[in-house]
Design a protein around this nucleic acid. Structure first.
Lengths: 220, 220
DNA sequence: CTATGTGAAGAACTTCACAGCT
DNA sequence: AGCTGTGAAGTTCTTCACATAG
């Protein structure tokens, strides 16, 4: 293991590996080679070995990787051993659909509170949490103790303010689902997902796939 | 302009530029420099100029870019001039929240049909479309004529089959929102978004931000 | 004088290919 | 004999720095 910086690209593949490994374990596969795992996630074995090598030496030469151990190692590396508390700002249809989304909980992310500015949404219950007034963010966060992630799912015009409130309340990181370029202070990790943007990218590849001919590379 | 392959990384930034430009236009900004635009999207001016240079020469030296023209050029390049038809498979809370999401429509993506396997969901209406039985995908797609994107928002176990049905029905590309590694044939562009994965990546950066010290690079 | 467009340098990432363990 | 771990080679992407155009 070369203990230097782990590439961003590697980090963003770990969730894929983790997912595949959990599936393998569910299928009672105990040991997996980089080759097999590569097939599971749709990449190549060198990529996998290199990615792992940045973090440690998890495998056994001539054998492969013990699925269970690998899950543990990756989880540890990503900081997933302790479960995480998440709150949501923006309880519209999209936002509140996340409150009952089991996928988060299964992976150790618990949505513990939700906020909106709209009186009609405040008080509504979904996925076990009651929507509160945004003004209560700070107090609620204080009561919860530690909130790891704030998910923003407001209308575009309200997203930046939502981010600021989250930061002010001491929420540790932000997942922005609104198509807006958010500013967050240094030290507050921020990631954005833009579904419309994804559609636009697909649109591009559509154009090329249908026009041109010959071997295609799948968009990443 | 060096008319060669446009880098994938460039493609995936175009939606960001487009968004920023549309905002600028709404603020009645007519002309923008690479410097200003860079600030809007949170990158640097060299990146922007290089990205544009792959597609054409859109600017005027000493002046900048005409916002309106640039929007047109990028839209054209991404194939966004014609509006796109989208269908949805999986009309649970998450899926059906997308049916009434205005952001898609604003950007020219119209969700024209939705499908589910669950009798309780079939017949329900959301965002102007009525949820149909998945068995009707093929016929409905035929009636629509051309479906550009199929969005998959089923439970994990049903996602691969949904993808296959979409492909069989002739849907041109797939946006997968389910945390599963989907297989799609060559020639059917596929993109996946995994919100849990995003949370896991944040978890990693959280760990590092809080442990280590010194200048931080924001995760991309 | 200002801001673009772009070769060239540099950095990041991926793939190769094989030495090194088991 | 088989599969990992990894330097090295190759590729892609980003940033620099400046010639070029207005």
């Amino acid at each position: 293991m070369k203990s230097k910086k782990v590439p961003q690209a590697t980090i963003s593949r770990f969730p894929l590996y983790l997912r595949a490994l959990v599936n393998l374990l569910a299928r009672e596969v105990r040991i997996v080679s980089s080759q097999q795992l590569a097939e599971e996630v749709g990449t190549n074995s060198a990529q996998i070995r290199k990615d792992f090598s940045h973090v440690g030496e998890f495998g056994t030469r001539g054998v492969g990787y013990i699925v269970e151990d690998l899950i543990e190692q990756i989880s540890k590396f990503l900081g997933l051993l302790r479960s995480k508390k998440v709150i949501l700002v923006g309880a519209g249809k999209f936002g509140s659909s996340l409150l009952s989304y089991q996928g988060f909980r299964e992976r150790g992310f618990e949505v513990v509170a939700a906020f909106d500015i709209d009186q009609r949404k405040i008080g509504k219950k979904a996925g076990g949490v009651t929507v509160q007034n945004v003004d209560e963010i700070e107090e609620t966060v204080k009561n919860i103790g530690r909130v790891d992630v704030g998910i923003i799912a407001t209308p575009a015009g309200a997203a930046q303010e939502a981010a600021e409130r989250l930061v002010k309340a001491g929420v540790k990181s932000i997942l922005n689902l609104v198509p807006v370029n958010l500013e967050a202070p240094e030290g507050v990790p921020l990631r954005s997902v833009d579904l419309s943007g994804e559609l636009q990218i697909l649109s591009y590849y559509l154009l090329r796939t249908e026009t041109k001919r010959g071997p295609k590379k799948r968009p990443k």
